[in-house]
């Protein structure tokens, strides 16, 4: 076989196998995160949602927040939490939760510095106060490009614990279905066969 035919066959084999794997374990277009977090006096809840490889729309709902802010950042929110430590802010807990199949990461941290953290974050970008829409639920909605973050900060809560719900839906992603991939692979094999037949006829 000629080199182009060999490469075409290699691509068609890779397409079929990767399509099967993608169908079984492939990307998900929805992701969610729920947590109940104790927020004591003087403690700030920091929640970062970062789109690692995807882009999409995020909706953050927080029950029990009296004072809540949000801001948009680029970069890694987990690195931001590490930087808070470098600023001598007491980060009492932090945990990133990756959802690889949706290409998003959620970072939750509790920081012992309520007013200072808003001031520190305002150096990085515009910190926007969130007005409660009704009842006790505060909602933040944002569209995230790849590598963007939305950071939600709760500096004061009306209850000892706040409930956080995050939903993230991927936008702008599509890939071939297994059937389409199979047809594409067959077409590639057909091209390779035609190339081989043409070569044998010419030589």
């Amino acid at each position: 076989m000629t080199l182009p035919s060999r490469l075409l066959v290699a691509i068609s084999i890779a397409l079929v196998i990767s399509s099967i794997v993608a169908d079984l374990y492939g990307a998900r277009l929805e992701s969610s995160y729920k947590n109940t977090i104790p927020v004591g006096p003087g403690t700030t809840l920091f929640l970062g949602v970062s789109s690692l490889t995807s882009s999409g729309r995020v909706r953050v709902e927080v029950d029990g927040a009296t004072n809540m802010y949000y801001m948009r950042l680029t970069g890694d929110p987990y690195t931001l939490v590490q930087q808070f430590r470098a600023l001598n802010l007491n980060v009492s807990a932090s945990r990133p939760q990756f959802d690889l199949r949706a290409g998003v990461v959620y970072v939750v941290a509790l920081i012992q510095a309520s007013p200072a953290i808003v001031q520190a974050l305002s150096l990085l970008g515009e910190v926007i106060p969130v007005v409660q829409a009704g009842g006790s639920t505060s909602v933040v909605e944002a569209r995230l490009a790849t590598g963007d973050n939305v950071v939600v900060i709760v500096t004061e809560a009306s209850k000892p614990v706040v409930n956080v719900r995050v939903s993230y839906s991927v936008e702008g992603y599509s890939r071939l279905t297994p059937l389409q991939t199979m047809l594409a692979s067959l077409a590639i094999v057909a091209v390779a066969t035609l190339l081989e037949l043409a070569r044998r006829r010419l030589t």
Partner: peptide, 8 residues
């Protein structure tokens, strides 16, 4: 690239 929704 297909186990995660890469859009970039």
């Amino acid at each position: 690239v297909s186990i995660q929704p890469v859009t970039s």
